[in-house]
Nucleic acid binder design. Structure first.
Length: 293
DNA sequence: TACCAGGTAAAAA
DNA sequence: TTTTTACATGGT
């Protein structure tokens, strides 16, 4: 299967950011596992051309409804995201110009499934990314579905039927286990209609999500920007966001959430995407830029 | 060892 | 109504 993406697009660079904490759900080299047509499925992705940007994809087993699958993969890759206007705007700023220029073709990769994103978000509440990753690995091992060498995240119906202590044994807190089981049950039963989330306006959807137990401001915004590709949404209370915004735009001083909102105001309607670029640049600067290539 | 890490809900004040 | 507390793991 062949996916043509809006260029510029650098798949390797983009995938690095996604796969860093993916554990057994995805490899650094460009494969991932997901449930598709009721089967755990492995997908292998590789960019074969730059201009136009083409990603070749092989799925195992191959989906029957290839059009829907292609649509999903386009969303995962951010195939329709156009970066040029965003770049033109950021390059007018002398601080952000080098950030953009170091990361040309970077797009946020979306988790292939919205419940997977919910699970990631809840697991990352409060504790470090590393600690959360360990917990997710145990959830994958215990309740995920092997697909080749990888493991697909459990579906809502898989989590809905669990007892709280089964998730606690993976390292989730009592509370988080309750949140996830209730959310999974709501989705499995159809009371929570994640399909309808796709086309709701940012503010309305954020409010809806915050109505669910376990989903506060941070989690709702995190799901919107990372899970649904909402380019303007920023979890401004997020410690990592406050750190990078301070580093690049705030002169290194400690920032409150409202400081973050104020400093990012000029970058609408790409505030979320701007922060993604800052986070990516910061991370790569820490690791050394050569490794990023 | 203690404390913090890409928060949240519920108890206490 | 606002403030404080418990919670889970992993790194320092």
């Amino acid at each position: 299967m062949r996916i043509v993406c809006e260029s510029p697009y650098d798949f390797r660079l983009s995938w690095r950011m996604f796969s860093e904490f993916a554990g057994k759900n995805a490899t650094r080299e460009g494969s991932l596992a997901l449930w598709w047509e009721d089967r755990p499925t492995s997908v292998f992705l590789k960019q074969t051309a730059r201009e136009p940007a083409v990603v070749e994809l092989i799925a195992d087993p191959m989906p029957r409804q290839t059009r829907l699958f292609q649509q999903r993969m386009r969303a995962v890759l951010g195939a329709d995201l156009q970066l040029e206007t965003f770049y033109r705007r950021l390059r007018r700023d002398k601080t952000l110009r080098p950030v953009v220029n170091a990361l040309v073709g970077l797009k946020p990769v979306r988790p292939p499934d919205i419940f997977q994103m919910i699970l990631i978000a809840v697991s990352e509440q409060q504790i470090s990314m590393r600690a959360a990753q360990g917990i997710r690995e145990r959830i994958l091992s215990s309740f995920g579905a092997p697909a080749g060498r990888l493991i697909a995240y459990p579906r809502p119906q898989d989590i809905a039927s669990l007892g709280v202590d089964e998730l606690r044994r993976c390292g989730l807190s009592q509370r988080k286990a309750e949140y996830l089981i209730a959310l999974a049950g709501g989705i499995a039963a159809g009371d929570i209609d994640t399909e309808s989330w796709e086309h709701m306006p940012d503010g309305e959807l954020t409010d809806l999500l915050r109505g669910y137990r376990g989903v506060g401001e941070w989690t709702a915004e995190y799901i919107l920007v990372r899970g649904l590709g909402r380019e303007d949404v920023v979890p401004s209370t997020d410690l990592g966001v406050r750190r990078v915004v301070s580093h690049y735009l705030g002169g290194g001083r400690e920032l409150s959430a409202s400081d973050v909102r104020e400093l990012l105001e000029p970058w609408a309607p790409w505030r979320g995407l701007t922060v993604f670029y800052l986070l990516a640049h910061y991370r790569m600067t820490q690791m050394g830029l050569d490794q990023a290539q």
